[in-house]
């Protein structure tokens, strides 16, 4: 049975409203456009979205792009995958990320390829193993935030994926000092669960292209077929695939109610803070799809925002 019926069935049983709740809009909406670049000029970009529809966007004069480093949008190569943050109901592009990817996982082994370093990562039972290249030019920057590039420790970096090769350029967080198997337990709680829990929200590319959704760490292992789920250093309540999760960006006053579509088994192992605006409480509480992350006002190269989550 598909998990998409779960919210409706649960609402029936508990007498809740059947219509999924929607967060109220406070700021002008952002739209995320994803797809493959068909053509790009200094003022116009044409992309083919995952449904095969062509979308034409005007590039704002102040727009910037990122593809391993900050570039002008017109330098994005044709044929690359792009995530665009667009304003004016998706007509004006103001931030573009080309071939962007994020590698989050547990280090299995380290290697060398000339001057570059290579990392083999275990990215959770659903996502498998990934090979990442850290180019010599970025290795210092990544090593500063990841002092223990050793098997068993966590790794989280943002980079590009071009022709099947994943290259890490930016550290996405400060590496937790503990091994991936030694996540600190959540603080004891004698009160009831608060309806909104604060922490850091990250993004992940383990979603379908353009999909809106969220990966949540606190799932029952048997229900989610994910043996690594149910670990978090924050007191998160149990939810399931198909539950609707309210996610609010505290810095930007934007919020959305998104379905939980994947198991956030790696997110739960990071007990870090996001220092996007102020310092968030400890703990990564959700992993958003790139499209949802961008629509909530996040910057893919920053890797996180201070968030509040709750049951939708």
């Amino acid at each position: 049975m598909g998990v998409e019926r779960r919210h409706a069935l649960a609402s029936k049983a508990l007498g809740r409203s059947l219509v999924p709740p929607q967060a109220e809009e406070e700021n002008p909406a952002l739209t995320a456009v994803t797809g493959e670049i068909l053509d790009v000029s200094p003022h116009l970009i044409i992309v083919e979205n995952p449904e095969g529809v062509e979308e034409r966007l005007v590039i704002a004069p102040w727009a910037t792009a990122w593809r391993g480093s900050v570039i002008t949008p017109a330098d994005l190569p044709t044929g690359s995958r792009v995530v665009i943050r667009a304003r004016q109901s998706g007509r004006v592009a103001d931030r573009l990320w080309g071939d962007v990817t994020r590698v989050t996982g547990v280090i299995l082994s380290m290697g060398r390829d000339g001057r570059d370093r290579t990392v083999e990562l275990h990215c959770g039972p659903h996502r498998g193993t990934r090979e990442v290249v850290i180019p010599y030019g970025a290795s210092g920057r990544i090593a500063v935030r990841h002092p223990r590039l050793e098997p068993g420790y966590l790794f989280d970096a943002i980079g590009t994926r071009v022709e099947g090769v994943t290259t890490a350029y930016l550290p996405a967080t400060s590496q937790p000092p503990y091994r991936a198997t030694a996540v600190p337990p959540p603080p004891p709680a004698y009160n009831g669960v608060q309806s909104r829990i604060s922490g850091a929200a990250a993004w992940s590319d383990a979603f379908d292209e353009g999909e809106a959704g969220v990966a949540y760490p606190m799932l029952e292992r048997a229900d989610s077929q994910c043996d690594d789920a149910g670990v978090s250093c924050t007191g998160l309540p149990y939810l399931s695939l198909g539950s609707m999760l309210y996610v609010g960006n505290v810095c930007e006053s934007r919020a959305a109610v998104l379905p939980i579509v994947a198991c956030g088994c790696m997110a739960g192992r990071f007990c870090d803070r996001c220092v996007e605006c102020g310092t968030s409480p400890r703990g990564r509480i959700a992993e958003l799809s790139p499209a949802s992350f961008v629509e909530l006002g996040g910057d893919l190269t920053n890797g996180c925002f201070n968030a509040r989550v709750g049951l939708g």
Partner: peptide, 15 residues
């Protein structure tokens, strides 16, 4: 007749 659903809630990983 399980009520109005959002147009799709796909599951991206493992199912």
């Amino acid at each position: 007749a399980a009520g109005p659903l959002r147009k799709s809630i796909g599951v991206s990983a493992g199912h």
